[in-house]
Design a protein around this nucleic acid. Sequence first.
RNA 1: GCUCGAGUGGUGGAAUUGGUAGACACGUUGGACUUAAAAUCCAAUGGGUAGUAAUGCCCGUACGGGUUCAAGUCCCGUCUCGAGUACCA
Length: 964
Amino acid sequence: MLLYDHKEIEAKWQKHWATNKTFKATNNSDKPKFYALDMFPYPSGAGLHVGHPLGYIASDIVSRYKRHKGFNVLHPMGYDSFGLPAEQYAIQTGQHPAETTKTNIEGGTDKSGNKIAGYRNQMDRIGFSFDWDREVRTSSPDYYKYTQEIFIMLFDSWYDNDADKAQPISLLESRFRESGTNNINAATEEDLRQFTAAEWNAFTEKEQREILLDYRLTFLADTEVNWCPGLGTVLANDEIVNGVSERGGHPVVRKKMRQWMMRISAFAERLLTGLEGLDWAESIKEIQRNWIGKSVGAMVSFQLDDHKIDVFTTRPDTIYGVTFMTLAPEHELVDQITTAAQKDAVEAYKKATAARSERERMADVKTISGVFTGAYATHPLSGEPVPVWIGDYVLAGYGTGAVMAVPCGDERDYAFANYFAGQEGMPAIKNIFDGVDISEEAYGAKDKTPLCNSDFLNGMSYQTGAMAAAIEKLEEVGSGKGKTNYRLRDAVFSRQRYWGEPFPVYYKDGLPQMIDSKHLPIALPEVDEYLPTEDGAPPLGRATTWSWCTQENKVVSNDDDRDCVYPLELNTMPGWAGSSWYMFRYMDANNENEMFSAAAQEYWNNVDLYIGGSEHATGHLLYSRFWVKLLHDLGKVTVEEPFQKMINQGMILGESAFVKELEIEVDGKIEKRFISQGVKAKDLNIKSGRKLHADVSLVNLQNELDMEAFKAWRPDYASTEFITAEDGTFKVSREVEKMSKSKYNVVSPDDICDQYGADTLRLYEMFLGPLEQAKPWNTAGITGVYGFMKKLWKLYHNDAGFSVSDEKASPDSMKTLHKTIKKVQDDIENFSFNTSVSSFMIAVNELTAQKCNSREVLEPLAVLVSPYAPHIAEELWSLLGHKESISEAPFPVFDEKHLVESSKTYPISFNGKMKFTLDLPVDVSKDELEKMVLANEKVQQQLEGKQIRKTIIVPGKIVNFVVG
RNA sequence: GCUCGAGUGGUGGAAUUGGUAGACACGUUGGACUUAAAAUCCAAUGGGUAGUAAUGCCCGUACGGGUUCAAGUCCCGUCUCGAGUACCA
């Protein structure tokens, strides 16, 4: 083969790798292990665009590099295949989501007759070194039976705050039997019922199960959830953006529903501290820290008649500055404490706030509103009356939904106090900061300032222990205690959906019962439609065979009226369930007896390199960390964190093409014209103009539109005239936008592979810029990389064909080779892939200029290139006479001796400005160097008439004269 | 508002610990080959300025200061853009 033929080469090697299972990873090896993982994709019908494989290419480069470096590499891929789009498509077409999911992965034709390439086929064409024998699909019963098993493990666990870990529920039961709730420090809701051992033992089994439900790590609770009527399901906090659903942008309302919850809050502190040891981008860690939202402070109780109002404050030291209290309008005590005189005003206010959506309340933070309840609570230390207000600046969902207002130190309290100053129930602001003027604004910088008007705290400040002293006093009088609060809420785990994991749960006497793990999987039932039932039950409510028989231990018909048959749970699990543990399944993906063996997990440990988008910062990355901590506590895994190092690849943006449309007046009539970019429309009577998206596939590299194809694509514009440039071409304008089908700017990797080849695609994706950065895709630029591929091929060929000599390479060529070895090695280890591609180009340009065709250089060069462009590397490797795949060939070893030179080109500067360079020997002393430089004619010219004030010589770096 | 990140040619982007700014590409221009085009190859390409030229000089890494023999890189301030977050008590 004389010319570089990417099609033939790539097809050949992709087949070779598949048939020989070249990239199969073994679970026992003497080699050190390396686990490189990509966030697995959701297989959508739209297929992959060039943005999707970016991270996969990077992880593939690292994986292949590590194999060359002698590692046993685990580099798997799979599909996060449960989810909303398949279900919505099913609602529209009636096609089972399992079918469309299969088509989207394996290829085929969709219901409307469109060809679907299939994720697997698309990925295969890019030449990834995945071990496909370990593929997982979260929607496969073989996989989700273990997701269900983990759910059971959560149900059978509680969180022991004293041991600071999850424990089996049986341990809790035995402790209840022995000593009741005495000395139990569990993560639960506040104020659970306390009981003695005798009481516990006297409870009925049902009562005991009810009590235990409050302790389990997954539990049923009537909670205010985010109900999205548009999607017909509840959403977790991280699935809501700006008050609307992340998917679809539908409004979200608060609604009370009985739902499965995950007690992630029990792990808040460990999720926070665990971040410290992770090699992740600081920004992601920061997002997680904010999401967890730890604040240290105290709970303080204010007595109001028979009621107790609890507030959380981070500054108990300002307790004597409390001027009033504010409750959220939804606070449960509001109705009970409101005085008769204020009742109407309070009711009206509650109504008004309830009518405002969450979104409106968030958008409008400037408007101050509130109402006095007429009630006065008692200050726990001073005993003074404290007026109680309600106001919507206090959020029901955070802390206790009530605050002690200290206007002198808090902006919001200050604004509220000022707004209502002089009204009934709003006393003058109490100032507790010694010598501070608060007539204009609240005092923010209060940490160091000594307190006054604060009884025993006078003279102390936050920094000198006022906080601890205040808490101590509150505890002494029984009106408070130190408390750490987290913003992180327990996660809703039920979805009113069809296409998700069914719960392994049936209901007996209204209480949930787990199905024994050995009967799993509980497979999704068939339903006639993927919609909620008439009476609002989830889609599984339509299933006719969806009851559990406790004798046969299988799913039976709902008509079965035996006593041992119970209804099954109708909700399904959320999208994040399956993705929270998949990294471990890959370690032992074909194990039919358990989710993974202990040996496999101990061998692979956790993920050494995780690559994916940063949009999962508060969802997937937090939930999987939570589940891994649970699995760790229960002894299932040896690690506390799933992903040791993570890199977040940036988005690849599309370059949309626009056709400019003008409305012009011709003979009194309005007509439409398309006008080419760059053509002046001076003689036209323009009425209006706008831009139309044109499909980028209709535009060539010179931005010229295929006008006939455009008319065929948009028949509604078939008769519109084109005003072309003088040469008859029509140019579009370009703009960078997110790559998306609706903007017609999607570039498919398949097309690039056809035209330029997978190796070129891989190199170009890396060449675009740093992995983490967002960058626009510009197909025109790919010719540079394609040209490089051809030049690389040529190095190993002459006019007659393959030709490599066994003669020794020149020192110049050895230098080129070794500086490239060093650069590429450093780059891969620093994940700086774009600069590697440059250095390959430099190396090939240099070797071409040197006319190098020596095996001594070209053989290691093929290995160097192989992680980036594996197909051409394999082909060259085999042409070089090797029978084995290049993938296990050792990485060339860098040898400094080839870079050693006798002279160095020094920049010679005067007053810090480089004027010219001089070649000077490297092995001479500083003094000699100075003499040589001063002896130089050009130096003397520069120094003429000037005086040297200082000479700086840094051997190997620079010479600088300070002259004046 | 707060937190984090980033501002370098026409474009994407290079520049180890402060030490020759603009590597490598794209694009553009000119040239070779060709009937022509594509492909390929060669050359030029930050801005300004002087010179027929070789070459020289000045300005340049968002802006204003500072540290230093030397700053894209370090420090202080300002502006712009992006991401995250938002009454969290």
